[in-house]
Design a protein around this nucleic acid. Structure first.
Lengths: 138, 138
DNA sequence: CTGACTGCAAACGTTTTGCACGGTA
DNA sequence: TACCGTGCAAAACGTTTGCAGTCAG
């Protein structure tokens, strides 16, 4: 897809087949861990190395092309940078959901309390998703 | 301090000199990384091993005696479990501040949007603290 | 053609493990 | 005394690095 090519160029990243595949996998999955990405990449690039995955992830993080989400009791996951948002994680099945909150008031409150000049936030809620709630009842 | 002894017992942790010292360090520092804790422990226990630090931290996390705070571009820090709260981190000097927010409305909003049964939240704000703001201006 | 990316293997830092010894209850 | 914790050394694990060959621009 040429949209992927344009996006890579916009972020000053050389276009390689591996990178395009990484992008497709990210778009398809939303969030993905290093391991999962490596396994998924192997489908079409059987000889890809883990070093390549790490090098790309790190480069993409530096260029602010990717965002890293840290989750309790779970490996970090990575997603394409988009509008700032929060995450909800199921402690049972580990599913990660994007959630768009209006954090304006929260930022004001924290600024007033801390006197920090705030830049970003990392907000993760932990709970049990609808599906896993049903499983527990039955 | 016997309060520390009682607290360890409450969490079903055997009382040892090393653990009491870990608690004192935690109380004195608020939040601390593994390395910092190891260095601080060595002051009074020069022969303490890093393995002991890890074993204690992991045990205390399991017993919900300690809480792990994950911070972007910084090593994890650990704190004694207390009332749920959020954190503000200075991206310059890496200072970590506790902050008590009323997150009730936020929980309701997220519940409505996600249909998760929420348990906990992990909220970290990143910005520049008062001191570092002054430094930048001058 | 030049610089950047890939894949491999080795190196590195962090965390975990097994074991013998010593301390706690 | 029986169990648990400590310290040491080795092992395991995840991540990074250097290099030679290849690809992108």
């Amino acid at each position: 897809m040429s949209a992927h090519i344009d996006l890579l160029k916009k972020y000053k990243l050389t276009v390689t087949p591996q990178r395009l595949e990484i992008m497709s996998i990210l778009v398809a999955n939303g969030h993905i861990s290093i391991d999962e990405l490596y396994v998924a990449l192997k489908v079409n690039f059987p000889s890809v190395s883990l070093a390549t995955v790490y090098k790309n992830i790190n480069l993409m993080l530096e260029k602010n092309f990717l965002f890293e989400v840290q989750i309790q009791n779970k490996k970090n996951v990575y997603e394409l940078v988009k509008k700032e948002h929060s995450h909800v994680v199921c402690t049972e099945c580990k599913e990660v959901l994007d959630i768009y909150l209006n954090t304006e008031k929260l930022f004001l409150e924290v600024t007033a309390l801390s006197h920090f000049s705030l830049k970003t936030s990392s907000i993760v809620f932990n709970g049990i998703c609808e599906n896993c709630q049903k499983v527990q009842v039955s």
